[in-house]
Design a protein around this nucleic acid. Structure first.
Lengths: 148, 148
DNA sequence: GTTCCTGCAAAGAGTTTGCAGTTCT
DNA sequence: AGAACTGCAAACTCTTTGCAGGAAC
């Protein structure tokens, strides 16, 4: 358990691992935990600068890479529906699918046990030790289907 | 049916759509059809230059983008196990999963009906019209597990 | 006090674009 | 002949790195 009781969940996890908590990291962790969505590095930079003028792109990338390395966030491509940035989200407990709408560009999430089943099938039939599974679907959402 | 009977399958499909077949495109289509794997743009460029010195990077990217637009090849990220290039493969008839080994970097394919099931579930439960499903797994292959 | 982190600036990958000339149908 | 395609060079986007100063423990 953490001795840093008034830290955010992510911050405590880092502190517990002996990783330094800087002002910049706290800011970034906070944004990542608060925003429920799928952030780009550049979104994150913009949001962070609202709280801390001087925060740098490099710090954002370095922090994301740190969190990814610690298994705390997940990197997604989301089918590059707009641009080719990577997206990041808190590592989820439950397996879910990301659905990107080719009309409006929104990202929807969809829970399904089938993801876990697929993961087991891979493990069982290939003998691979699975670390993570990413399912990304390109689609047209109901609203955009009408609008067409 | 195509009147271009001695073209490759991809070339015929393009010709049938009234898309011009240039020397460069034939070269590239040929490589894509022959190599069974997952090519990067830069792999493709290298291979193409063995047959045609003057072929340009831009032509490779433009051709890939054309084929993608026509639904003839699929773009993959393959978890960016090495670098952040995109990979391309012939659009497959059967749904499969790409497994990237974090040890050796090789990409394995794995067929499973679960992918189709997942696709149906998305369609049924979200009302989205699904265009494509990408499943990418990060894992350690049996050989690399031993070697660790 | 040491080690790690940061901002800055510059470089690096990967990809795209404008344009003048060439090739396809 | 006309539209579409190509090579070239330059630009662009996203991300990483080297370094000197600054903050965390």
């Amino acid at each position: 358990m953490s001795k840093h009781t008034n830290e955010s969940a992510l911050a405590s996890k880092l502190a517990d691992k002996g990783i330094r908590l800087t002002r910049q990291r706290r800011t970034l962790l906070d944004i990542i935990e608060t925003s429920q969505g799928h952030l780009h590095a550049s979104d994150l930079l913009t949001l962070a600068r609202e709280q801390d003028e001087r925060i740098d792109r490099a710090t954002v990338y370095r922090t994301l890479s740190l969190l990814k390395g610690q298994g705390l966030v997940e990197e997604l491509d989301l089918l590059h529906l707009d641009g080719s940035e990577h997206h990041y989200e808190l590592k989820a407990q439950t397996s879910h699918v990301h659905i990107g709408c080719k009309g409006c560009g929104r990202i929807f999430e969809f829970q399904s046990e089938l993801v876990k089943e697929l993961e087991s099938a891979v493990r069982r039939e290939t003998g691979c030790a699975v670390e993570s599974v990413r399912v990304e679907v390109a689609a047209w959402c109901p609203e955009c289907r009408k609008r067409q």
